[in-house]
Amino acid sequence: MSYTIIVFVKQVPDTQNITGQAMKPDGTVNRQALPAIFNPEDLNALELALQLKDRYQAKVTVATMGPPAAAEVLRNALFRGADDAVLLTDRAFAGADTLATSYALSKCASKIGKFDLILCGRQAIDGDTAQVGPQIAEKLKLPQISYVEEVLELTETSVKARRAIEGGYEILESPTPALFTVVDANEPRPENAIRIMKYKKAKTKSELAASKTSTYVGGESVAEDLETKAAKGLLIREWSAADVEADPGRIGFAGSPTKVKQIQSVVLTAGDYKAVEATEAGVSNLIHELIEDHTLG
């Protein structure tokens, strides 16, 4: 028995290391100035899938929704051990909130076909909502286990996992197929040198077309090249909204009930500021002042 595991990943701006240059003069964030990275907890989800692949036999398909450049995280997943990759990309997906995103990804999962598990990172660092995983589960009518740390057992019909709860943990058993959201509880394996050599040539259709127009050398057409790539397992499948039969009214901006009314940059100010000397006298005066105004009892 071989299992099929889908891992949904996201390419995100590195919001945890925002530098001065990344803020525009009007106080908004300049996404272009931020490095695009593999969402950290999605790497944990991928690692969990690869551990299952090591333990049982499993085919790991990694998929993402994003702009054409998001193929980068798919290649990275192939470098680490994923078997194949799907890029869901279409201008019609733009402006999606979590409801529209989870709908699109659920359609993507259905097109990938039969699977035993879907793994997602708990949340992405650009929005921190943790909503897309549970919403994909609901769309596909799957049981969900959130905050998974470890899979204890996978069988043809069920899965047993340990997950974090507030102040402790639980061991849950669920029938498969099921969806997990995964927390930062494992150490994602690094990219494998041999796999890099092979999969750096893995491309999407758009990437192949772009390379043809910019550095045209050989005589073969994109179509021929696609076939060759596919035969070698080096084609990253690229699907549009139509390819996954997504209802246009439920994706992108149109399919998103939440609208952003206003964005403000965070300006932190304390009002009064007093510099205190790092001396016995300075500190003593400060403590005296805090006792006087009843801050300290």
Binding site: I18, G27, I125, G127, V260, K261, I263, Q264, V266
Partner: peptide, 10 residues
């Protein structure tokens, strides 16, 4: 949002 760098009204 955005790692706490902005405040959004939704």
């Amino acid at each position: 949002a955005f790692g706490g760098n902005i405040i959004a009204t939704i």
